[in-house]
Design a protein around this nucleic acid. Structure first.
Length: 923
RNA sequence: GCUCGGAUGGUGGAAUCGGUAGACACGAGGGACUUAAAAUCCCUUGGCCAUUGCGGCUGUGUGGGUUCAAGUCCCACUCCGAGUACCA
């Protein structure tokens, strides 16, 4: 009987579907295990061969856990809101919902062909009202909350209002972006609108005037993680800085917990490191500098308090509120000119130029320790968004201050002994202090580290500042001026203040619009919707939520996807708790994986979920790159020269569709037919073949290197695709898709199939397996069991091949041995395993079979081979019965017939016996 | 610049606690079957030398070190990848 993978795979996929084999429910009698893939954005291009890599890895793990007796939750869904569908809608007028549905159908079809064990009854789509109701609900909870820094958790904003009534803002322990506080009297004297405005500075979801990344081309703002090097991640359009009123999430309040809790989860070092950098913890001090002729003081942040004696000027960010305060009338014109210049530069231009620029404000500050007057400058190398937007400049020990001081000819005072600052600053936090003592503070002779500590102590005592921790992590900007996203459950009252919709009005459904473009007046697309008003007739918010809104809590929704009363029921949450294994790419390190953690922690603060972290273990699969092929055209001709002969000609490499190439050999006739201009092409061959060049590049249509999983399934079968993807290399590693190796995996399955049948009859028998066969299969059980736990799937596949080969050589026909083999193989190649399982007459589906355990007794060698080394060089082997004591092994090695030659009549100086491996004789 | 990874045959990659490289697969070469091809099966395959003596030398980016023993540990360097970047 032939191995007809197409028939087998179709048959079992249908069977699993009809029997809901992978449907899962809460079952208190079994331990749970939650395996999750990062759900895909259904793009128009469909899946390529890189997508399934992580899905296959998690599928194997999910199936394995099921064999081990776990109740496994393994769902899939779609991150359905996104820019591409909307851009397509703008161009074609096609409603994004239609495009999205089509794309989802295509994805589903492709996914089904690979044989995943998803429970499709739990599918979620972020764009469906039943789903986004809970995205809106979570937003409302955030709107109605503030962050209490004393309790270190979110609390209802009503508690804060009560506090304000009694005590004002002083001592409220609330995380805030408010510039100024107020007393209880002031609070109580406020109108409702004023109170509403004041509370905005405290809410976890708040409307704030912030500097945003504005992308004119996309017509929307973008989050920090959606921008890289001054251009948008999607589309690569330039991004400007602009102050706008936007919804924000107070992620920064959670910075400390997001950082600390990284220690409680099993993620790779690299992704933890990325998050640590993104959160950007830095310990320093805030210090007050009096301003000459002004009541206000400058508040600055520094990590180098010890360098206070070297401060020779101050710098403000151009956007800093201090600017207007300190600018003198004489300098007004110069400052305005500078501010104007800065404003018209995009962040990208600022980065590229990297020129020193700035302007003197006309005013001086007083160094609180030395009492000296120092000039205050304004420059764009200081960022408004970090620290206080103002710094004390220490040119001797900070390279940016140094460049500025050189440019404006400001004094530079060295503070560390032996540091040469004639050419550049000395930035290292290392050395002995000098020039740093007066009657108030003495730092001379101290190590930098100790000087920092002493200065911090001093400034707190003297009341000129306090120790402060700063984070780089900013609040997330949560508004998008787009159509295809979740509407905000917010309306605006008579005073123009945003107010929450009642929860009973959720979901607030996305309205229809005539066009997907902004309105003529520049309002977001929702401004086109008719009757876009709340039930009380008041206008609704026109912005929509960003892409990460819907993906921040989807893992919770899978636990209880049809619940209309809660995001997730208490029962479901307490059973499934958190994702035990999360598989996805590293590209979400600073986006989704931060927002999800934040979102989960917020829900955790209120007890809506019982775990502080959403994803216990994270595995990052690498990217599968494309492998492009090239042909080489001789310049100014239509002649192509084979790869190894091209050095003799002046050639232009041209991408050629990989479908026209097999094992780097070009199908010349297909190539001629590919493009009209190649129809009469000529070729210079080597060995009668045209060999193409190749390169590893991103998989993309324009490089003609996209490999579609459907084609592979069609040609080789899903099981072969699965095994091949796992066999390519370690799961975390990026690697090119390699079709070359697939024949090896394909051959393995064919041979295995052949081992079961003699002609058309099953040839396995209920036989007592030989010791060798037992050893072989138990070796495999051990290897695969251990490999799966550490995601070392590539070596597992190799082990399968070795074992199958050994059993074949041993002519093993024993059912019990092959039964174990099939169960082990089932997670990797479920279709063939299921078919063989049934062919052997086993009951039920193979995925419910108990995972075999290995018996060490079968693995023991009766004889142990030792390599005998003389002075570290292997010379001969000896075999002794297992368990022979070391000194006896040594004795045998030295009396062996070969030993005399290497001993050369001398006595050994030393003999080292490594159990079961080595005898090393030092002569 | 800073942080974190990595470097092993022609290729993808194995190698547990340091135990004497290159598993497995591809590719290549040779052979069997076949009129022929495909498919299948067998042998060889890091390099150099010796191959009617089953052997010798060398070898895991470079240079040094620790050790009886280093791909693995330590120090310095080179190159590659990723993250981040006026973060004070």
């Amino acid at each position: 009987m032939e191995y007809n993978f197409n028939k087998i795979e179709k048959k079992w996929q249908q069977y699993w579907k009809d029997n809901k084999t992978y449907k899962v429910d809460i079952d208190e009698s079994k331990p749970k295990f939650y395996v999750l893939d990062m759900f895909p954005y259904p793009s128009g291009a469909g899946l390529h061969v890189g997508h399934p890599l992580g899905y296959i890895a998690s599928d194997i793990y999910a199936r394995y856990k099921r064999h081990k007796g776990f109740n496994v939750l393994h769902p899939m869904g779609y991150d359905a809101y996104g820019l591409p569908a909307e851009q397509y809608a703008i161009q074609t007028g096609q409603h994004p919902e239609i495009t999205t549905k089509q794309n989802i159908a295509r994805y589903r079809e492709q996914l089904d062909k690979i044989g995943f064990c998803y429970d499709w009854d739990r599918e979620v789509r972020t764009c469906e009202p039943g789903y986004y109701k809970w995205t809106q609900w979570a937003f409302l909870q955030m709107f109605k909350s503030y962050y209490n820094t004393a309790l270190d958790k979110a609390r209802p904003i009503t508690e804060l209002e009560e506090y304000f009534e009694k005590h004002g803002s002083e001592g409220c322990n609330a995380h805030t972006n408010a510039k100024e506080g107020f007393t209880a009297e002031q609070w109580n004297a406020m109108t409702e609108a004023e109170k509403s405005q004041a509370l905005m500075d405290y809410r976890i979801a708040y409307l704030g005037n912030t500097m945003v990344n504005w992308c004119p081309k996309l017509g929307t703002v973008l989050a920090n993680d959606e921008v890289s090097e001054g251009v948008s991640l999607r589309g690569g359009y330039p991004v400007e800085q602009k102050v706008m009123s936007q919804w924000c999430l107070r992620v920064s309040a959670y910075a400390g917990r997001l950082l600390r809790d990284l220690d409680t989860i099993e993620w790779s070092d690299s992704i933890k490191e990325t998050q640590k950098n993104w959160i950007g913890y830095s310990e320093g001090a805030e210090m007050l500098f009096p301003i000459v002729g002004c009541d206000e003081q400058l508040l600055i942040f520094t990590t180098r308090a010890d360098t206070i004696f070297g401060v020779t000027f101050m710098v403000l960010a151009p956007e800093s509120d201090y600017v207007d305060l300190v600018v003198t009338p004489e300098q007004r014109a110069a400052v305005d000119a500078y501010l104007n210049e800065v404003k018209h530069k995009t962040e990208r231009e600022r980065l590229i130029e990297k020129k020193v620029s700035g302007v003197f404000s006309g005013r001086y500050a007083i160094n609180p320790v030395t009492g000296k007057e120092i000039p205050i400058y304004i420059s764009d190398y200081v960022l408004a968004g970090y620290g206080t937007g103002a710094i004390m400049a220490v040119p001797a020990h900070d390279s940016r201050d140094y460049a500025f001081a050189k440019h404006f000819d400001l004094p530079i005072i060295p503070l560390i002994e032996g540091a040469d600052i004639s050419e550049e600053s000395f930035d290292a936090k290392d050395g002995i202090m000098m020039n740093s003592s007066n009657e108030r503070l003495q730092l001379n002779g101290l190590q930098v580290k100790d000087a920092i500590a002493k200065t911090k102590e001093y400034i707190e005592e003297a009341g000129i500042g306090k120790v402060k921790v700063n984070y780089r992590l900013r609040d997330a900007i949560f508004s998008r001026q787009r159509y295809w996203g979740e509407p905000f459950p917010i309306y605006y009252d008579e005073d123009g203040q945003p107010q929450p919709l009642d929860e009973s009005e959720l979901p607030l459904q996305l309205p229809e619009v005539d066009k997907f473009l902004p309105t003529e007046t520049g309002e977001p697309p929702l401004g086109r919707a008719k009757n876009w008003v709340a039930s009380n007739g008041r206008p609704l918010e026109l912005n929509t939520m960003p892409g990460f809104a819907g993906s921040s809590a989807y893992y919770l929704r899978y636990m209880d996807p049809h619940n209309n009363e809660a995001l997730v029921s208490k029962e479901a949450d307490e059973y499934w708790r958190q994702v035990d294994l999360y598989v996805g790419g590293t590209e979400h390190a600073t986006g989704h994986l931060i927002y999800s953690r934040f979102w989960n922690k917020f829900l955790y603060d209120y007890g809506y979920v019982c775990e502080a972290e959403p994803f216990r273990k994270l595995v990052n699969q690498g990217m599968i790159q494309g492998r492009s092929n090239f042909v080489y055209r001789i310049k100014d001709t239509n002649k192509f020269v084979s790869f190894n002969l091209k050095k003799d000609y002046d050639v232009t490499p041209i991408h050629v569709d990989i479908k026209l190439v097999y094992n780097d050999v070009l199908d010349i006739e297909a190539f001629k037919a590919w493009r009209p201009e190649f129809a009469d092409a000529e070729f210079i061959l080597e060995d009668g073949k045209y060999i193409c060049g190749w390169a590893v590049e991103k998989m993309s249509k324009s490089m003609f290197n996209v490999v579609n999983p459907d084609d592979i399934v069609e040609h080789y079968g899903a099981d072969t695709l699965r095994l091949n993807e796992m066999f390519l290399g370690p799961i975390e590693q990026s690697k090119p898709w390699d079709t070359h190796g697939i024949s090896g995996v394909s051959k393995f399955l064919k041979r295995l199939w052949g081992q079961f049948f003699d002609g058309d009859t099953m040839q396995l028998v209920d036989d007592k397996p030989s010791a060798e066969a037992l050893k072989s299969i138990h070796k495999l059980i051990k290897k695969v069991s251990q490999d799966i736990e550490v995601f070392s799937y590539n070596t597992s596949v190799a082990a399968f091949m070795i074992c199958a080969n050994e059993l074949s050589t041993l002519k093993c026909k024993s059912k019990s041995v092959y039964r174990d083999f099939i169960v082990l193989l089932a997670p990797f190649a479920p279709h063939i395993a299921e078919e063989l399982w049934h062919q052997m007459g086993e009951q039920g589906t193979v995925c419910d079979a108990k995972w075999p355990t290995w018996n060490e007794d079968y693995l023991k060698e009766s004889m142990v081979k030792y390599t005998v080394l003389f002075n570290g060089k292997p010379r001969f082997n000896i075999e002794v019965p297992a368990g022979t004591p070391n000194d006896e092994v040594q004795q045998q090695a030295l009396t062996h017939e070969g030993a005399a030659r290497w001993l050369d009549g001398k006595q050994p100086k030393k003999v080292i016996v490594v159990p079961n491996k080595i005898v090393n004789v030092v002569v």
